[in-house]
Design a protein around this nucleic acid. Structure first.
Lengths: 241, 241
DNA sequence: AATAGTAATTGATATACATCAATAAACTTG
DNA sequence: CAAGTTTATTGATGTATATCAATTACTATT
């Protein structure tokens, strides 16, 4: 859907605050923003986000969905939970790489065609750097994610998820439990049992809120990349020296 | 180590054939190549390839090593098997992301500092595009890898590894079995048993050579991204339509 | 507020794969 | 090429977590 002038202005304000457009002047972004398109998805929708039909760059204006791969058996791998302000770029996938999006909440996506994006990359060096930064972060997040899936026990996975929520200053579960369990590659039953288990560490989850005995019980589940966003990173209380 | 003029010339010829320097003229590459450095590693060496000490872009002139993450218990995740002609770029990692390299064979790495690389990115649009392409492929490979680790059974993992070897026209195991087992996230014993299992599909591995009854037994273990490199991709015999 | 529908928990059981142990095969290296 | 060392195989056993089944707790809708 192509938005009206008023919407373009409103969305431009939103977009220009995103990291992917960082340090680029309004003048330079203007022509790109004129080509924006918008799509609404509803809770429960499923679409295949392949490079063939979706060679675009998407920015999440609002909403929540998961990016998943399914195998023949119907088992799923949740590669990413995608939230407000996030970016996803199937335009950079191989034409043979298919991925599904399942919308958990009503979601508004703003997007730009591959051509529009490549035009700005050609014209604007800062934008190239932002794209490079974005892709490098994607790759690093995926390496960390593979590590979590492969090396951590169920309990450690849940602890890791909770410490991330805490570092983002959320004392509440940001996502439904089934979604978190799927993202961590475990059955909802195992997730539930892991939460029970964590009470031994002084970590209590009542309904959706996280309660801690003295506040640093979750640190043992932290990794250095996640920890670098923590207020106490590398302080005495921190496990990362 | 800074190489002599003669070595620079010799390595330049090698480098200019790599995908990351594709479609860039010798003139434009010359100044970059003057800044090349070279390092030899020996079989058995282990180094931490962190962004702190290794903010470079590395090209593998020859050799073989694995990029791994270790956890507290000493369990390892082999994120990548790195071979001749491959590129790795810890310069794009976060300063807090540590990864180890374990050298399986004697290895020669040619590398460029972050500054050298960023200079060429700033000057040369094609090089930006090549870096973007490289990072996009890294991310996609990691998504596929997570899928393999998480969703496939041991037998499917081994089948997947073999079909990749076959598509690369290798009727021989390109890597030692322990290394493959580690890469696929399984114990060497499980790898060995999976190979025995695959005999039921008409897939026989004698010592290091792969022998097939009629040639397409491995197709069932193929994925679309891997398959796109196959001569028979999307033919009647191919599972991808 | 009542009903239906979904999500979460708890318990019992099954299973794929790891681990341990012993042997055999395959490469190093003097 | 022989002795030593690493790698691979085969068998027996253990275990973490999935699956199945039943119950309870939420959430949404009229």
């Amino acid at each position: 859907m192509i938005p009206s002038e008023i919407h373009i202005e409103q969305y431009s304000a939103f977009l220009s605050k995103l990291p992917i457009f960082k340090n680029i002047s309004k003048n330079e972004l203007g022509p790109l923003f004129q080509t924006m398109q918008v799509h609404q998805y509803h809770k429960g929708d499923t679409v295949i986000f392949d490079a063939d039909q979706h060679a675009n760059l998407y920015l999440v204006e609002s909403g929540l969905f998961k990016l998943t791969k399914f195998d023949q058996r119907g088992d799923e791998l949740v590669l990413r939970i995608v939230d407000q302000n996030d970016a996803i770029s199937p335009m950079h996938f191989s034409p043979h790489y298919d991925i599904s999006a399942e919308f958990v909440k009503d979601t508004t996506l703003i997007y730009f065609s591959k051509n529009s994006i490549n035009n700005l990359i050609a014209k604007n060096h800062q934008f190239s750097m932002n794209i490079i930064q974005f892709l490098a972060e994607s790759a690093q997040t995926l390496m960390l994610f593979a590590e979590v899936l492969q090396l951590k026990t169920t309990r450690e996975k849940v602890g890791w998820y909770l410490v991330r929520a805490k570092i983002n200053n959320l004392l509440e579960f940001p996502h439904p439990k089934r979604l978190i369990a799927a993202y961590l590659g475990m059955a909802p039953e195992s997730f539930s049992r892991a939460l029970t288990d964590l009470k031994n560490d002084g970590i209590f989850v009542k309904n959706r809120s996280i309660e801690l005995n003295n506040g640093n019980e979750l640190c043992q589940y932290c990794d250095a990349v996640t920890g670098s966003d923590c207020d106490d990173f590398k302080s005495n209380a921190c496990i990362h020296h």
